[in-house]
Design a protein around this nucleic acid. Structure first.
Lengths: 228, 228
DNA sequence: ACATTTGTATGTTTTACAGCACATTGCTTA
DNA sequence: TAAGCAATGTGCTGTAAAACATACAAATGT
């Protein structure tokens, strides 16, 4: 996908823009390619504009106690990144890293504010997006602190499935994370992520083939997640 | 404070409204008194309008595993409550309870949306408020999961101080929570909240007199919080 | 004035999980 | 094609914090 295609994409919040406004966007965006593992922005950086993913996948994480990283968000195409800091007028409070080769589009802060001031529907879309994400974040706070390891991992796997969907086989989660990333998403150590994934596999809840994870029994996984 | 006074308050996001718009608010708000301990809205309820606190203090919490509650926000006068669900067009994902006698003002959903569509600056204020709160929530996710008990409690005490300030003596935190609430804010059991508060007191970091908590050594408290 | 509930305090036991060491496998890249 | 390194897998150990138990003080209601 290209930046232009994102602007016209009906899944994007840009869908509420008028043809003229879309034109403004088209004339003012720039694009940059990031290789797998490259940093898009770092905790502490000053946001320069609004970024969105045209192609690829991105993890957003915060550095915690002793450099331990906690993934707070996983993003996919037509999704914004780095907009929290932009709109809060703060420096970035998290780091974004491409987990596959990715194309990231940018528009200047001035341009997006111009659009926001002229188009109330765009504002309302952004407000709704923030409200939804805040709900998600609050939910995570509770589950990451209260659920036990199995529950946390089960929830993460369901989350990854909901975010990225399945491959054509209808069971392999369409993202390939390292065990370390899975651990950082689920608030556990790499050892425990590996161990618990193995346990799930031995219970035939999931199937493992390297970084490929197949969900074999979604109901059971949901039960494990709900139980805590 | 009354609803009217909140509308004119310069700390409120309403400060960006025109006199006519403020008039619209004044004519369309209603007010309700809640006694200490009363529920303002419950997890699962459908939001009816935009609520804000004219007087009093409110805790917002989510029910977690086994009914264990996690406080996700503490609100004070001129602060909105329940707006996340309203703008996300979801049911409430948390419960709000008055922790002192409180006066809560309401305006209908239609009225606030009308204002949002007519006043871009109001939109931008709301967006900024959401962006800031999301940052706060992400931060909490990391600290509540990664910091140890002492660090979590220290952080909560600093947070309470920052939110509610001090009494006239310049050291007593201006909110009186039960040990259980402090525990639910800091992701720990009541026993551990009590125990750790006692330890802090014995280390002369804080002073305890019933529910009154005096911060005696803020620097030390901050160090404990940062250390994890 | 009494009983009953609720909140606070503290000691003991149990356990989930982190931390570490080490073995093994699978990619790079030279 | 080997060497080097990162990623993965597994067992062991220590410990932070939950769970449990009990005592007492302070509200609350009757």
């Amino acid at each position: 996908m290209t930046c232009e295609e994102c602007i016209d994409n009906k899944m994007s919040v840009f869908s509420v823009l008028s043809p003229e406004e879309k034109d403004l966007l088209r004339k003012n965006n720039s694009s940059h390619h990031y290789k797998k593992g490259e940093i898009i922005f770092k905790e502490g950086d000053k946001p320069t504009g609004l970024l969105w993913i045209a192609e690829g996948k991105v993890k957003i994480f915060k550095e915690g106690v002793g450099g331990r990283e906690q993934i707070v968000r996983m993003a996919k195409p037509v999704g914004f990144i780095g907009y929290r800091a932009l709109f809060a007028e703060e420096h970035h409070s998290a780091t974004a890293v491409a987990i596959e080769d990715s194309d990231i589009c940018t528009i200047e802060k001035e341009t997006i504010y111009k659009l926001l001031r002229s188009n109330a529907e765009l504002c309302l879309s952004i407000i709704k997006a923030f409200a939804t994400e805040l709900g998600f974040s609050n939910n995570r706070t509770v589950t990451l602190t209260q659920k036990h390891i199995r529950g946390r991992l089960a929830e993460s796997l369901i989350f990854l499935k909901d975010t990225y969907g399945f491959e054509d086989d209808n069971s392999t989660i369409k993202i390939y994370l390292s065990r370390e990333d899975i651990a950082n998403l689920s608030n556990m150590t790499t050892s425990n992520a590996i161990r618990t994934l193995s346990t799930f596999a031995s219970e035939d809840v999931i199937g493992i083939d390297g970084r490929k994870i197949r969900i074999q029994d979604l109901q059971k996984l949901e039960r494990i997640s709900e139980l805590g």
